[in-house]
Amino acid sequence: MSTQADNERIALLQGTLDLLILRTLVFGADHGLGIARAIQKQSDDVLLVDHGSLYPALQRLENQGWIKAKWGVSSNNRRARFYELTLSGRKHLVIETSQWRKLVFAIGLVLGPEEVEG
């Protein structure tokens, strides 16, 4: 099913799931399963979304008003709840993304150049 070995997968850092969901929804409305698959695919199967966390996370984002949801029909004709970004969600994403980049850059500086194993 997955093309990568389990040991190369990385558990999501706390808080990053929200950011990834928002990013995924930039391309348009999608349902929960679609979002999970998209994250998996975009990350070359490195990131595997835990479904048990996905739906509470979606609910959290919805409560915060960053995404909104309505029931619709999926591409294979099944009923599904579709999520889309709201305007404030879009703004939040921009802020969060730039903060994340700064964080990654800063951590990179601290860790220094990658050491070659062996």
Binding site: H31, G32, L33, H51, Y55, Q59, N76, R78, A80, R81
Partner: peptide, 20 residues
Amino acid sequence: GRRQEDFADEIRAHIEMETA
């Protein structure tokens, strides 16, 4: 504004999609 049943529905839909 969202009921428990609605949430359960969504999860059921997810599993059905995955099954399909």
